[in-house]
Design a protein around this nucleic acid. Structure first.
Lengths: 112, 112
DNA sequence: AAAGATACCTAATCAAATTAGGTATCTTGT
DNA sequence: ACAAGATACCTAATTTGATTAGGTATCTTT
């Protein structure tokens, strides 16, 4: 039904982690990375991504560099020091949330 | 930061799966099951849960029975046939989404 | 020449969670 | 006896965040 979109609320953690692993990326590249990484199962729309990137930049976690490539503009994003810290924390939080979720999905009442 | 709440968007799948495993449950019991199952790491607020339950009921997935226990009302929810089908589908979708997410979180550019 | 991929973006709408309450009963601690 | 906390239901208003639905522009492929 809505398997094709990322689990809600994890978008910023995903973006930060992708930048952590790949040094710097531009928006369109991130959307492709998500599609590619998930073998087409998940995609993030640009309408969700760009505002998220701008928000992370406004929060002082990302630095940007704009370059020209093949006649088109590319705006590269990368983590600064604060962003690197935040990236680690958000990844941990996300992994713990997933781990908790998996436990909950197996939960049986004691007096079942 | 917001590790203490369930991954957004998965609430209905969680509720359906808990009912699938436990036959019937009432609202407050579900909030406790989530806390207990996640060892206190995750909780769902009643303000999120009750509207979600009402929506699932309105969608024709749940049947209810109201009982008196210790002088207080309890409204039990259980899956009907349609709800059982939907529960299986949503669990599959959620597991696949988590699996995709885990892959994405490891994604490295080919030309990194 | 048209279609599709690449590359950026925003505004309006919608969905869903949070914040912030409300009512009421029973149990536990002081 | 009284207060606090647990149990048990609920809703309204706000906020957050994704979706829908656009927009511009260049380059590549058919």
């Amino acid at each position: 039904m809505e398997t094709d979109r990322i689990i809600k609320g994890s978008l910023s953690a995903v973006v930060l982690q992708l930048l952590q692993l790949n040094g710097r990326m531009y928006g369109y590249e991130i959307t492709k990375a998500v599609q590619d990484g998930s073998r087409g199962k998940t995609r993030i729309t640009e309408a969700a991504l760009y505002p998220a990137l701008h928000k992370l930049e406004a929060a002082g976690l990302l630095d940007t560099e704009t370059e020209m490539a093949d006649g088109r503009l590319r705006k590269y994003y990368k983590l600064n020091r604060k962003g690197k810290k935040e990236s680690v924390q958000q990844l941990e939080a996300l992994q713990e949330a997933i781990s908790s979720l998996q436990k909950i999905l197996k939960y049986r009442l004691k007096n079942g």
